[in-house]
């Protein structure tokens, strides 16, 4: 099981902060597509960065069962 975390505007538009995907191995790009298809109304799914286990990763990165992937919309701290 892969855990997908959503934040800020993405979380609000989805109405949830967490999704799961029952796969052994999947690319970040495939997870992004899954989020887009599950919640077509979420803004900025293409543009959000992805972080796997709390580190930024490119779209071709493979993730495995047990991993957590977070989509990071443009940040605005400070």
């Amino acid at each position: 099981m892969i855990t997908i975390l959503l934040f800020a505007g993405m979380k609000e538009a989805a109405g949830t902060d967490k999704l799961t995907m029952d796969r052994e191995q999947v690319s970040v790009a495939e997870v992004r597509q899954f989020v887009k298809e599950t919640y077509p109304a979420i803004p900025g799914t293409e543009r959000a960065m992805a972080a796997v286990n709390e580190e930024f990763v490119p779209d071709q990165e493979l993730i495995r069962d047990g991993d957590t992937i977070a989509f990071i919309p443009p940040v605005s701290g400070g």
Partner: peptide, 23 residues
């Protein structure tokens, strides 16, 4: 911090609110 730290702010105005990104 404004580049890489996953923190977001939501502005509440008198006429609405919005998540601010990509400062």
């Amino acid at each position: 911090i404004k580049e890489i730290v996953p923190i977001w702010k939501k502005e509440h105005w008198d006429d609405g609110s919005s998540w601010i990104g990509d400062q």
